[in-house]
Nucleic acid binder design. Structure first.
Lengths: 133, 133
DNA sequence: TTGTGGAATGTTATATTATAACGTAAAGAG
DNA sequence: CTCTTTACGTTATAATATAACATTCCACAA
């Protein structure tokens, strides 16, 4: 028998919090297997889907990986900035940007339900280090 | 012997233009195999990467699929709106949104290199049809 | 003209990511 | 308690993507 949902989700959040940066579903699975050797991918994906729906984690579509929510899951779409050097991810909430975005796509009558906004580049720290070299 | 790069890329663009909506790498591969039965995934992925670099197609990160560029590859990041009902994709260019986005992530010193902006929802047509039902 | 070095392409194999399908167990409603 | 619904377990497989290395092409020098 496996763990029941909430306990599993809690354990997953702990792992993700301890992990510095995004983690893939299978890397997460591997860590979870230290406490439950038989855990299957399906179980992990289901829990990830649930956590995502709750707004407690975010999926990075451009990396097939997951990060904990940094702004206490208020369900609004976030802007995720991803450092391609050190892998760190920052989350920003900016209603103005979302509004502007909906205006732009709305010009064709499009009705937005879900936003994927991911910015790749260099975080402040890594950008400074690049400049030095 | 397979086809040389440019010819392959041209054929891929033709297929993508004829296809109504995003196409996955493997669906594209299957179509290409009607003219070259031995084509391998690697070949397709390399050509897709090249076309993406040239700005002639866009990859939909949230769908693992590709669409032709609708604005004659000026390399600027686009806003892609994806209808979850009929699968159509529209491309918008909105420098204002990009600027605002860079300002937001720049507050932490982040230096943006690449934007992934994908909006899921219903296109004007499908949204109207929903309302009727 | 030939050879040689580098880049693009071909080829094989495999890694990584994700879901389908179906049986079983748990927990709340009545 | 028992039914029904939802979550969970399990097995298998589908879908997406890349690593690694061999081969070919082609520009350019000797």
């Amino acid at each position: 028998m496996g763990q029941r949902g909430e306990q599993l989700q809690a354990e997953m959040l702990t792992i993700m919090d301890q992990n510095s940066g995004p983690i893939s579903a299978y890397d997460l699975l591997e860590k979870l297997r230290s406490s439950n050797a038989k855990m299957a991918p399906t179980t992990v994906y289901r829990a990830l889907a649930s956590l995502t729906e709750q707004g407690r984690i975010h999926r990075l579509e451009s990396m097939n990986a997951y990060v904990p929510c940094q702004h206490d899951h208020h369900h609004q779409s976030s802007i995720l900035s991803i450092c391609d050097d050190c892998g760190s991810v920052e989350e920003n909430v900016a209603p103005d940007v979302l509004n502007q975005l909906e205006t732009v796509v709305g010009e064709n009558g499009f009705s937005a339900k879900r936003h994927v906004i991911e910015v790749h580049g260099l975080c402040g720290t890594c950008d400074s280090e690049e400049a030095v070299q």
